[in-house]
């Protein structure tokens, strides 16, 4: 059985002293019970970026759905694998970067389903693409996947 605790510093963000200008970094286990922390961080940062409360909640939903996909598909619900999140307030909106180290996901798998096909599941991608303005998926990382999502302020 794996012993708990004692994380190696090279695997933590504790030793990273690079500057963070209008950005926050979170490193969480890929466990559904931590999704709320990501949502709360998003709502807070979106308010600082100038988004309305409703828009902030929508951006939090899109990010939650992307993390849900990581937990379900990249990590096959293995809850101790990390999800690294960077939330960056940019001049004209907000940018969210999600990084996982799980199974690579092919871009063609990231298609929204036909909404007329009423059945449980398959709506997450539709929510993400309806809410966010720009989505860049990168599976060229040596391990895992990277997703960059951007939402611009209404005036842009």
């Amino acid at each position: 059985m794996k012993k708990p605790g004692k994380a190696s510093s090279k695997h933590t963000i504790l030793e990273n002293r690079s500057k963070l200008q209008d950005a926050i970094e979170l490193r969480l286990p890929g466990d559904p019970k931590y999704l709320k922390i990501i949502r709360l961080a998003l709502v807070h940062c979106c308010a600082h970026a100038g988004f309305s409360t409703d828009d902030g909640q929508s951006i939090a939903l899109a990010t939650d759905e992307a993390c849900t996909n990581i937990i379900k598909h990249a990590y096959s619900r293995e809850s101790s694998e990390p999800i690294n999140v960077v939330i960056r307030i940019i001049k004209n909106g907000i940018q969210i970067i999600l990084r996982d180290f799980g199974k690579k996901v092919e871009e063609k798998e990231l298609k929204s389903r036909d909404l007329d096909d009423i059945r449980p599941g398959g709506l997450g991608i539709h929510f993400i693409s309806s809410i966010m303005d720009k989505i860049t998926y990168d599976n060229s990382c040596r391990e895992g996947n990277k997703l960059v999502m951007t939402k611009y302020l209404p005036q842009y």
Binding site: R39, Q57, E65, I118, R119, G121, L123, G124, F127
Partner: peptide
């Protein structure tokens, strides 16, 4: 105050 696609999926299943 918050529902994601997994919550919606649960309600769709119950509706069916």
């Amino acid at each position: 105050s918050y529902m994601d696609s997994s919550g919606v999926a649960t309600l769709v299943e119950a509706l069916q």
